[in-house]
Design a protein around this nucleic acid. Sequence first.
DNA 1: AAAATAAAAGACTAAATTGTCCTTTAATAT
DNA 2: ATATTAAAGGACAATTTAGTCTTTTATTTT
Lengths: 149, 149
Amino acid sequence: MFSKACEYGIRATLYVAMQSMEGQRAGLREIVDVTGTPAAYMAKILQKLVHAGILDSVRGPVGGFGISRIKIDNIRLAELVHTLEGDRFQGTCLLGKKSCGDTVCPLHNEFLEMKEEMLGMLENTSLFELASQLSLGLGTLKYRDEGET
Amino acid sequence: MFSKACEYGIRATLYVAMQSMEGQRAGLREIVDVTGTPAAYMAKILQKLVHAGILDSVRGPVGGFGISRIKIDNIRLAELVHTLEGDRFQGTCLLGKKSCGDTVCPLHNEFLEMKEEMLGMLENTSLFELASQLSLGLGTLKYRDEGET
DNA sequence: AAAATAAAAGACTAAATTGTCCTTTAATAT
DNA sequence: ATATTAAAGGACAATTTAGTCTTTTATTTT
């Protein structure tokens, strides 16, 4: 569905958001631990999110990644997806490509509703919503088939 | 959204279905022309579809690819997607992996409805529905940004 | 100031996906 | 029978995605 980079990035961002809401920075080690993802690869993804202005970071001891409350409230899943895998989900038809907007795509009719719902959900779901659920223990960021038993 | 192989395969299958409904076989050259896809790669994809028992093929002049009326009626998009890109869309959470079924995934709640709709649509849309629309001139299988102007 | 800590950065390897090319095999037409 | 046509098959090449390793740079302790 999404690329690994995107999945990992979403999970990491949600964890950072959770920690930031508690006034805590999250270090790479910690993030990798909680999300069960490859450290060096995650480092790259976090870098990308920092460059994109989504996360902020400080080096050295007591350093780590954080995200401002304003961004937790305002950044939507759509923005994460966009920065982590380009426009694969932006305005493309479920079957074809960009031109689907004005050409009549046979699958367009079938999938239009679904696509709208999908994009709508990505546009409307804020980090806050998801991070809150996680804080309440309503979810996990680690998946059994990727980590240890 | 889907892999190239999957997109190409769906388009090819729909064209073959259209032609088969007219009692015509479709050759590779023709398929590649209509769908605007790389010939050698498409050949591989068609092979896969033949192996999977979705399409049938005959060699030599007057040969080409075809699909029986029974299969046009009964094969759903879900089956194409499954044979062309494995279980990436089968029972996996939109964010995480297989384990999402019993673990509580934070995005699961948000996306469950959408996922269900998506899988449902793949399960319920038959080749016949789509090929019929195409036959009526209600769509195209070629996308501008991939072919010539 | 020096040692320790942690992110930034860049070069690299591995694997999967996408795509090409060339030979073989099966069917038809002359 | 032979030539022709078109799919089957296998071996590659290119690209993208995923992942690793090593060095540098910025911060903070001591």
